[in-house]
Design a protein around this nucleic acid. Structure first.
Lengths: 354, 354
DNA sequence: GCATTACGATGAACTGTTTCATTGAAGAGA
DNA sequence: TCTCTTCAATGAAACAGTTCATCGTAATGC
């Protein structure tokens, strides 16, 4: 049916090994013959059979991106996937996208692994993104499939060598965001975020570090009020207002929470940034409000790019352990923060619900 | 290196053809022997070599999702991809994700096709999503690769048979949204959307149809003021306010534009829904404001699901033409619209900038 | 003029699985 | 007892490439 390398060889009047060498750009082939073969390829419109190639080469140009334990497609993850795809395209690899749902408690042997791992030879390396736990990593290691980990949402009890993984610097991002608010003159700064979730915990650490360094009292509202971060931000803000604790700034553990808090503030007649300064974390949304939210931006395409780079590397030397790549975050200063006047210059720095 | 079917055969003391039949669940194999073989498989921890399988079967369980001409990952497309993945997982297929950038004007022969199409045998069917033009479809057809099309963003001059494609019902969605506003008592309803883009055009058609049926004057603000829909919504709204045309409702061509318009209204001291009713199109964002935006929701997971279903079908009978699948949209009524009182009951229905 | 080297091209072996024609054994019927 | 049928299992062919040892030829060196 389809035209094979044999047909090309016959047409060009050479051995099929020669055609192979032409296709793969081997140097030791007579220029005249090479042209001959290339002509035959064009005439027959021959395209090598990828199945046969990857079979006989015992390698597939496929990297699998496994998104774990995420039901919806959070923009950060779609952007990471974008970055992965961009790098892979460049490097001549394909990206196989898979989701995988599991619980931390499941025994390694009980884990129903994604199909891409079940059979042998689909992908030569996998990227583990989303939220992951020890048991899955153990299972992948047992299979002997090379993998690369997005370390931010990896939840572990013990210690693991920081190898074969990419991480964006949440700790420092949160630290810098808090410092920024402090330098604007804020002292009563709340952190909101559900500390049951590891990423909110790390960001809180950054916040606490900055507050401690400036000898300011940490104000943390960590209630796990809702699975939905917008609602959680909304409700957290309500609780802060109810507590009647004076404050001038909010640092939200992610952008959705920031938007939720913002709506609550607005509802109570408080203006951002005039009455309250607000900083988020993520920076994945395109502008949706005016003023645009000041936030800690994660360069997720870069994260994906680095993950893919590492994965490609590992398809070539699967045993080699690659050092962790740490990707800095950047504080994007937009319109939701304002400097406070020096102490005493303004009568009322704090705000209570009316 | 890896354990093959031969090793299993040797261990179980049978011919390798028998092992193959056990693996593939053929009926004509002695139960005792089958057990024997299965034991050997377990003991050796044998996993079939997917490369060899797809080679010899001359079929690969891979479907490629090609996202055309989209630089960023709009939530609607990530959700469609989710749907595709879900169906494929169920059906035993893998999803290969690729982006592809091209221009409508490029000659078919000049098109630098995505790698997944260049070699032969990676994927047995492709899903064409994103924004597509005739020339790419022609190229895919020339290659003889079965494909399935997301028809909404397909821009064509001529006519094509509505086969092998999935479409969500934008026209009716826009029509119903407009009707909803009319039934709430609104008469001065603006449509905003950049008519240079085909999807905004179709939605406008739905709007016009409803306005015409109710003998209402169509009010369309279609300036292509910015590539960014949020900004475009913002600017369109400014122009409407400047025009001093009285109005009571806005139907925005997509949610981003609705958010942009909303911010402008807020800036001018106009409340949604009290002063102006607002409807968007898309429904992909999780709540980001209070009240939540009333919008025409596209069930994008369902779109992906149907695309994948059709694609799987086509891997089995590539020649067969499958009828178009039309997916209804639903009007999600939230808090950004309010009924107008009967005529005359309220003094001031219209609003101008202060 | 002969041996040596380098270069190009060849053809066979090999990859791991499926498939199918063939074989062998067992059972049934005459 | 012999033939015919059925059921299971076998072993070899086929798939489309890559790779490598081998071989022929021509050029080079002495």
């Amino acid at each position: 049916m389809a035209v094979t390398i044999k047909d090309v060889a016959a047409r060009a009047g050479v051995a099929l090994g020669t055609v192979s060498r032409v296709i793969n750009g081997y140097p030791d082939v007579n220029p005249r013959l090479r042209e001959h073969v290339e002509k035959a390829i064009r005439e027959l419109n021959y395209r090598p059979n990828a199945r046969a190639q990857s079979f006989v080469r015992d390698a597939s140009p496929i990297i699998s991106y496994i998104l774990s334990n995420r039901n919806f497609f959070h923009p950060i993850h779609s952007r990471i996937l974008q970055g992965v795809e961009e790098y892979c395209e460049e490097a001549g690899f394909f990206v196989l996208y898979t989701k995988f749902q599991y619980t931390a408690g499941t025994e390694v042997s009980e884990l129903r692994l994604p199909r891409v791992l079940q059979s042998h030879g689909i992908a030569d390396c996998v990227i583990l993104a989303g939220t992951n736990y020890e048991n899955f990593l153990d299972a992948v290691e047992e299979l002997g499939v090379p993998y690369v980990l997005l370390a931010n949402n990896f939840v572990t009890a013990g210690k693991r060598d920081p190898v074969d993984q990419v991480r964006f610097d949440e700790l420092n991002g949160a630290y810098e965001a808090t410092n920024y608010l402090v330098h604007l003159g804020h002292e009563r700064i709340w952190y909101i975020g559900d500390l049951a979730l590891p990423w909110f915990r790390v960001r809180c650490e950054g916040y606490l570090k900055a507050m401690k360094e400036h000898k300011l009292e940490p104000l943390v509202q960590t209630a796990s009020l809702s699975d939905d971060p917008f609602t959680n931000g909304h409700d957290s803000m309500e609780m802060i207002l109810e507590s009647k604790e004076p404050f001038t700034a909010i640092f939200a553990g992610n952008d959705d929470m920031a938007y939720g808090a913002w709506e609550t503030l607005r509802h109570h007649g408080l203006d951002v940034p005039h009455d309250v300064s607000l900083v988020g974390f993520g920076g994945q949304y395109r502008p949706l409000k005016i003023p645009q939210l000041t936030t800690v931006r994660v360069d997720s395409e870069e994260v994906g790019w680095q993950l893919a780079k590492m994965a490609v590397q590992k398809t070539k030397s699967p045993r080699q352990k690659l050092p962790e790549v740490l990707i800095p975050t950047t504080l994007e200063k937009h319109g939701t923060c304002r400097p406070l006047l020096p102490k005493g210059a303004e009568a009322k720095l704090t705000h209570l619900p009316h």
